[in-house]
Design a protein around this nucleic acid. Structure first.
Lengths: 108, 108
DNA sequence: TTGATATATTTATATCTATTTATATGTTAT
DNA sequence: ATAACATATAAATAGATATAAATATATCAA
């Protein structure tokens, strides 16, 4: 049985309204924390917290510019997330499926 | 600012290792609770709990067959999830982007 | 009807997460 | 050096979530 540990971590990171909004903002390009904070109308420490979660998951990348910190999407990781999710959802190949069904009518 | 309420709900529903495993099992076809329980090696009430979350999110559908209950994927909802996520991640159109950046160098 | 089986619900508890408040770190301007 | 600013971290709290144990409901078989 697959464990889906990495995919679960990525999904948990984006499964939040504020963090989806952050990703949506960053889909437009690099942005500093102060501008993100202003767009989302949340407290600065709260934004920093959400950014840290996205960064730890590898979905965004930080670069320092003077006293500002700019964040941008890590498109590779986001693509990996989309693909992994697609793999889980994809209709399985009947020949590859070795799942034992004892009580269901439908078999692979 | 978009709210992403529905997308967040869908993502929260699948952002769990057990529930991803359930979806993976169901990608193979319809399956009753007892077989899911056996495959995942979790307690039956626990499985029922996770199934309920997926069902409430609309990602799976239940059908009764005698004393068994079969579950199957709701592919429409899953496709909607994938597409919505893709929209958030997609590189934004510079002309459509009206986000104000005060302190970042990069502009839309 | 009685007992067995499949699933769902409830309750309690432990763990995790989001938010707030306060404070710390590091950078720039004066 | 000092003050102002941008961001991060820490601590406290409130709310959400996962799991386990017990129980309820519904269906079938004897």
């Amino acid at each position: 049985m697959k464990d889906f540990i990495e995919l679960t971590e990525l999904l948990k990171a984006i499964a939040d309204q504020r963090r989806l909004q952050i990703i949506d903002l960053l889909s437009c390009g690099k942005m500093c924390v102060c501008d993100i904070t202003e767009q989302l109308d949340l407290s600065q420490p709260n934004i920093s917290h959400h950014l840290k979660i996205l960064k730890n998951a590898g979905l965004i990348v930080a670069t320092k510019r003077g006293r500002w910190v700019d964040y941008q999407l890590n498109r590779d990781k986001l693509e990996y997330l989309q693909e992994s999710l697609g793999d889980v959802i994809a209709e399985c190949d009947a020949e590859e499926c070795g799942i034992t069904r004892l009580n269901c009518e439908e078999k692979c």
